[in-house]
Design a protein around this nucleic acid. Structure first.
Lengths: 342, 342
DNA sequence: TTTGGCACTCGTGCCCTTCAAGTGCCAATT
DNA sequence: AATTGGCACTTGAAGGGCACGAGTGCCAAA
């Protein structure tokens, strides 16, 4: 290995050390502290030269002349792109995940527990996109007569999600008729993609005997509406208290981040636009995020479930333990996929 | 009116003014500013005497010798107990509520929208208890065959809540048998309180023909479990960004409040233990809250829905616009009750 | 009971100094 | 060419001193 190669390698090592120390201490890290904490076999002066070079490359920056260095966004990006091994979860952590997630079978319940586990694991806010039913197929449609003039429509998808809607109908309900309509609807959409419901049901009322027209029309309208409403993504999140704990990292103001979470729309679009790497994990750092409210934040996310279409991840300050977060997100996403496919 | 009565009345007026100004400005309010902003027909010196008296009564306090006065918790309590008229909502606000809440018929959806509306109205965090299904009666039970060995159980309560559970059954499922079991179960629990499900179904399997025993047992177990699981209260919340905005009022640390919200348990117990006044509104101020994490916070809440068993309210700093919050919570609770009973 | 006057208190903002951490650069060394 | 020790230099943070202003408490008069 030539001298040049060696010093190149050390520079990367120095960048790593700067990132790690800064993430740990939240304070600009100086050359002296660096040689002490990490067993680099060189003097502080050498490190100073390296840090100056890193600064020229825009990977670190000094808040002021007589302070240590802080990683820039570019520095974090460089660091993240060169993470070789993520910290594997401890067996205690794996056990905790398993025990917390097993024994619930309602989709929303599983997702919200998962979000809580992930936020505890990473000490960040965990966000999780609720899988869109429209990508799934129709497993079952059920009509339940609730009373004289009320009908409940239940749509069950192949992903196990259940959506229901109560519809008032201005008709005398006859069980036999309701059953007929249900069979007709189910025959058309059963097993088909939820997204195709509108198209498939278009001509249904006309194909039934006239006396069933009003009922069939009401039901198809409601069902199309229900499938349509699912176009709107939903998400859950957990661990916002972690944001408050690290509010310094957001210039003391976590309001925009909380607003973005509650807004949902922005966050959902961001999640769906992330590009995952070879390991299925995506990292978006600071101003790489497409929305101004998240320029102080980073997102680590991964797809999960059938087709990896839905995303799960964490949102935290740019000064964040990336290797740890990536490991946790990856592990949880895989675990969740396994649970959902069972 | 005697002199003494007159000066008593003015003291209350002064307390009101102190509370209002402090809530508005977040700064200790002095005697001079008080006579200027409010048209009290007396001099600053008189107000000083009154404020000294209020301080003797423990209703206000001075952060230091040369500062104005700040209401104490006792002062807020005294103020709240003597609120004569709450600010009525503007017609624009009423219109906003109506347009935002109509057109959704899923219970969770209505509740989460309501929480969002309330948080916008009050600029506080809104919390809402999901009504417990067990207090309601069984409206319908449905069994849906999902596949060869999977059954979905759906429980619909008189409150319109739908809970479902997928149960794997180690049996060859025959539609006619499933229908028989469903009829038997429905016959026993239909119209009965959800809480009574366990008792009512106790001896069911034995009363059916032997071939149905395994199926009936699986279904009753699952149904009892489903009803039992609903014993655990849930809550939703919205508007945590408002907390961050007023973080100064929580000594700059909103972490405990966020944790309490996410914990749910503590918050739910607090909500259920609140005692409502004649108008159906309960106010809990600072250390009146039974939990240490909420000593910087106040809660304004009201019951809603059938029997007013479920609570809706806001959580904010003790320095809070009580009349406004009370008005908003009251209006929203009434409106929500009306929607749910429709 | 109310009022004007006045001395007193105390927090805030400002300036100044000191101190320590950390840098950049240079000449000497490997 | 890379590394090293030495050294002058910069700069924010911490602390002390000082003037200022807002607001109080008390008193004597109305």
């Amino acid at each position: 290995m030539s001298d040049q190669q060696r010093s190149q390698a050390r520079r990367l090592q120095v960048l790593r050390a700067v990132v790690e120390d800064y993430v740990h201490s939240r304070e600009p890290v100086g050359s002296k502290a660096l040689v002490e904490r990490h067993g680099l076999g060189v003097s502080a002066a050498t490190i100073r030269n390296d840090m100056a070079a890193l600064e020229d490359d825009g990977l670190v920056t000094a808040p002021h002349t007589s302070a240590g260095r802080v990683p820039t966004e570019k520095g974090y990006r460089y660091f993240v792109d060169r993470i070789e091994e993520v910290k594997p979860l401890s067996s205690a952590e794996r056990r905790a995940i398993r025990s917390l997630l097993e024994g619930s079978d309602d989709l929303d319940e599983v997702l919200s527990r998962t979000a809580r586990v992930l936020s505890h694991l990473t000490h960040q806010v965990a966000v999780i996109q609720v899988p869109r039913i429209e990508k799934a197929r129709v497993r079952h449609v059920e009509l339940v007569t609730l009373g004289a003039r009320q009908l409940m429509l239940v749509l069950i998808s192949s992903a196990g999600a259940v959506r229901q809607r109560v519809l008032p109908v201005d008709l005398e309900l006859v069980d036999a008729e309701v059953a007929l309509v249900k069979e007709a609807v189910l025959g058309l959409v059963g097993g088909e993609p939820v997204a195709a419901i509108g198209r498939l049901l278009a001509g249904l009322p006309g194909r039934l005997v006239p006396s069933l027209h009003p009922l069939a029309a009401a039901v198809t309208d409601a069902l199309v509406d229900l499938a349509e409403a699912e176009r709107v993504d939903r998400m859950l999140w957990a661990g916002t208290a972690n944001l408050a704990r690290f509010s310094d990292d957001f210039r003391g103001n976590i309001t925009p981040v909380l607003e973005t979470l509650e807004e949902q729309v922005v966050m959902l679009r961001l999640l769906s636009e992330l590009e995952q790497d070879a390991h299925g994990v995506a990292v978006s750092i600071g101003s790489e995020n497409p929305h101004a409210t998240l320029t102080q934040a980073s997102v680590v996310a991964s797809g999960y479930g059938p087709g990896n279409h839905a995303m799960i991840g964490v949102v935290g300050p740019t000064r964040m333990d990336y290797p740890g977060s990536i490991a946790a997100v990856r592990a949880i996403a895989r675990y969740l996929s396994r649970i959902l496919s069972a």
